[in-house]
Amino acid sequence: MSSISREWLIKRILLVAAMVVVLGLAMVVYFMAKESLPAFREAGPANLFSATWSPRDGRYGMLVFLVGTLTTAAGGLLLGTPLALSLALFLTQVAPRRSRALFSRGVEILAGIPSIVLGWLGFTMLVPWIRKLSGSSGSGILAASIILAVMVIPTITAISKDALEAVPASYAQASLAVGATRWQTTWRVLLPAARPGILAAVILGLGRAVGETMAVAMVIGPASVFPTSLTTPTHTLTTKILMEMGESTGVQRSSLFAMGLVLLLLAMALVLLVRRVSGGPFKYGVVE
C-alpha cells in the first residue's frame, strides 16, 4: 500500500471514529427529548415541575426529586469539599515526599470503590446509626450526603491537588521573600491563585454527586414527598427513575425521560460552568 493511500485511510478511520462519538452523543440527547415529548405534551410543564407525584391521579411532578438531587449533592459537597481541600493542601504542602505517594494512592483507591459497596455500607451501618441517634427512620438527605461526600472527595482532592501544583513556584517565593509564613503564603497566595482549578474540581464533584444513583438509592428513602427533616425519606431524580423504570408505561414512562432530560441538562450546564470558571485549560496569567 502506498504511503499516500495509507495516510488517507488513517485520516478516514479517525474521522469515522470522531463522527461515531459525536453522533452517539447527539442521539442520546435526541432520544431523551423525543421520549419525554409525550409527557410535556400530555401532562404539560406545569404538571411535570409540580411537587406532586401521583401517576394514578395523572400527577407527574418532579420538583420533590429535583430538590432531593440538589440538596443531597449540595450536602455531599458541603461535607466533602473542606475535607478534600485540606487533603489536597496536606499532600502538596505538608506531607513528606514518601507519605505523599502513599496518601495519593489511598485517594485513588477511594475513587475506585464501587458505589454499590458504599451504598451497602450506608444501608447496613450508616442508616441504622443515624436512626439510633435521631430517632427517625435514618434514611434521607443526611445519609445520602455523607455517602456522596465520600464519593466526591477523591475527585475534588485529585483536581485541587493538580491546581495547587500548577501554581508557579515564583508566587510562593515572592511571598516568602517578603517575610510571609508558610500558612500566610498558602492562604493568601496559593489558594487564590489555584481558585479556578479548585472551583472546577468542586463543580466536577457536583457533577458526580448529581449523577450518582445506586449508593444514594440505598440510603435515601424511598418516599415521593418532600422530607420533613434531613433524616426522613425522600427521592432524587436518579433514584426515582431507578425505582419506577420497570413498571411504568405511557405518560408516566415519558415523565421519567423528562427527569432524565433535566439531569442531562443539569450535567451539561455544569460542564459549561467548569469551562467558564477555569477558562478552558487552567490559566494563571503566567508571564513567560
Partner: peptide
C-alpha cells in the same frame, strides 16, 4: 527583601 530574575507579581 528579594527581587527575582523574572518579574513575579501575584495575579
Amino acid at each position: 527583601g528579594m527581587v527575582f530574575q523574572r518579574p513575579n507579581p501575584f495575579p
